[in-house]
Amino acid sequence: MSEHILEIRHLSKTFGSHAVLKDIDFTVDQGDVTTIIGASGSGKSTLLRCINLLETLTTGEILFHGRDVSKERINPSAYRAKVGMVFQSFNLFNNLTVLANCMIGQQKVLKIHKDEAKKRALYYLNKVGMAPYINARPDQISGGQKQRVAIARALAMEPEVLLFDEPTSALDPEMVGEVLDVMKSLATKDKMTMLVVTHEMSFAREVSTHVVYMAEGVIEEEGPPTKIFSNPEKERTREFLRRILNA
């Protein structure tokens, strides 16, 4: 069996009687930049939250290097430390400075010494262009800056996969660019394995290696961006793209 980093098998999720995800199957390999696109309410974010075990699966498996992590409900910490997540609403720790936000996980979860954690945090903050702001608290910086810090916080754990849950949706239009630039550089220069839920079609088309189109809780169509964007097979995909690209 070839080595997939992540393999999602027959994943289903229901909230009450409402099925949000129905029998999802897909894989993520080393270096893949997979974007998940689709209309609001199609289950994209739920899928990402399930992958990070923030939601419990109703049925199905999530294999991380071949090991089913969805059964490790009691102690998912070790797995989560290897799969970073960037949220739509940033979720930076309000009681800590920018620097401490990027250090706390390293110190408490990875048990890295303070000095080393600081070096690593500075390196990644520098990478996202936020190094001058290390003494600021989250409520003192702008949305775009918060999201860049959130990316640095996730990177500082040196995860194998980075999940992005609509990272630019809560930002003012002029701040979207700075966050997308960071993500682009991660994808192209650092060859980071990324799974991105987004409405930014230009990012999906130009940066990603694989595009997944979701509709009503199922994967309607997937493939390389050139195929999905220029020659989609399904009518629904075509309809969605027509709507979103002409908007």
């Binding site: 609403s89 979720n91 930076l92 309000n94 800590l96 706390i104 408490k108 979860v109 916080r153 996730a154």
Partner: peptide
């Protein structure tokens, strides 16, 4: 979101409570 942020970097319940 504060709980989720802490969970997402692998902190357990006690760590999340104590530090965040």
């Amino acid at each position: 979101g504060q709980f989720e942020g802490a969970k997402s970097i692998g902190m357990n319940h006690w760590q999340t409570m104590l530090y965040i």
